[in-house]
Amino acid sequence: MHLAYPVVLSALLFCTGLYGVLARRNAILVLMSVELMLNAVNLNLVAFDVWLSKAAEETLRSGQALTLFTITIAAAEIGIGLAIVLAVHRNRGTADIDRLRDTAERPERSEKAEASA
């Protein structure tokens, strides 16, 4: 199999996830897009591991081992991320990323406060 097939698919999936992270407003949809990006990286790792399978003794099968580690870390990440999103939703009543602007720059906010006052 030509190596370009899995690698190009992985690049396109990564960019799809990138678009989702940048364009989505709901935090859970952003987490889904992060999952897409992580899966693209996994596909890359598996493809290169299979490509180098002749040298499996030298590379310690690092591609597949790292893929398993990435899947595990992604599971941990989605658990923690969902817990954070739920805590934010419980406290603030929204999970929209656009509205969580507490750490925005100060001068803009003081101007708004002055304008409203």
Binding site: A27, I28, L31, I78, G79, L82, L86, H89
Partner: peptide, 9 residues
């Protein structure tokens, strides 16, 4: 998990 998150939010 994501579906549960969607449900809970």
């Amino acid at each position: 998990l994501l579906l549960f998150g969607l449900m809970l939010t």
